[in-house]
Design a protein around this nucleic acid. Sequence first.
DNA 1: GTCTATACAGCGATAGAC
DNA 2: GTCTATCGCTGTATAGAC
Lengths: 186, 186
Amino acid sequence: MNPHQAEHAALIAQIAEIFRHCGYEGASLSRITERTGLGKGSLYHFFPGGKDAMAAAALAQVDDWFRRRIFQPLERDSAPGAINGMWDAVDEYFLSGQRICLMGAFALDGTRDRFTDAIGAYFTRWISALQRALERAGVDGPAAGELAEDTVAGIQGALTLARALNDNGQFVRSARRLRGRLARYL
Amino acid sequence: MNPHQAEHAALIAQIAEIFRHCGYEGASLSRITERTGLGKGSLYHFFPGGKDAMAAAALAQVDDWFRRRIFQPLERDSAPGAINGMWDAVDEYFLSGQRICLMGAFALDGTRDRFTDAIGAYFTRWISALQRALERAGVDGPAAGELAEDTVAGIQGALTLARALNDNGQFVRSARRLRGRLARYL
DNA sequence: GTCTATACAGCGATAGAC
DNA sequence: GTCTATCGCTGTATAGAC
């Protein structure tokens, strides 16, 4: 990644953080200009498609991070190591529960309909990558699928609960128990 | 409940549905007037506090429903029956995954800060009511608390996943497994 | 690339007739 | 109670100077 691309990625990451905090509708362009320090002219220079394109870029960046750090290792590497790596990456990415999942947040309201494909692809791949890793670890097909669904759903639910109760510890404890449950199969 | 109160409750339920579908920011007054058939004058007659008061009333109605159908039975009745009743009520309320949880949706974005107390009280009471029912059923304290947290988080995550994948079956399957997991302790 | 100025639609909210 | 008209503001988006 050249410096130019890196700056652009940093900008997208900043915008993604605003979407996470305010939601799609709540993330106004004035908030985005304020938090990024860029005028509207600059923003529309980088994202000719406007706010919709900014959100799409944010989702694509999230997907890319998970693809490289979680999905591909789950599909490729030895299962126990990849699954342990998944839990470390999850904890790192969600900052131990301080940060929510942009895909999950967008999925819950009307924003979903703007980004159906990106959101669906992300969760589908996460579940199927985890399922296949569990199968390689010896879990039989149906059980592996159920375990993968329960795990991904459990992470989303833990993020919701942590924010609802304003307690990051909630996420850390939930994640530890989900991790322990998977570990019994490895 | 007299007819006047019943009409008012039906109006709040209609408004709640709009918030569920569009989120707080996305639920504009023009959408609300359109879907309810009431002009802005009427809406502000019923809710002098405006949109904020409409959302607060919606959350209060949700809380009331769960209190009567889930929290109080869990706190009062025999544990196995109350827990079975909880699962039936959950499935009924969320329409087998077609409907999301307003509390959970509001918790995820900046809307949370407007309704911190209502959202926090709802989840706190759900978890503690379930925990105490499990304790009465013979599960020891810490395990009951963990199980209650995992269950409520699991329901929220299943709702997120069902909407993200646009597949109600996802919720039904997840809920059935969560139910089975609790049943092993009863 | 970045800014300021601006277009115009939609927002939440209010007033007042009926 | 319900409506229409309208307020002031903010929303997204664009134009054009630099």
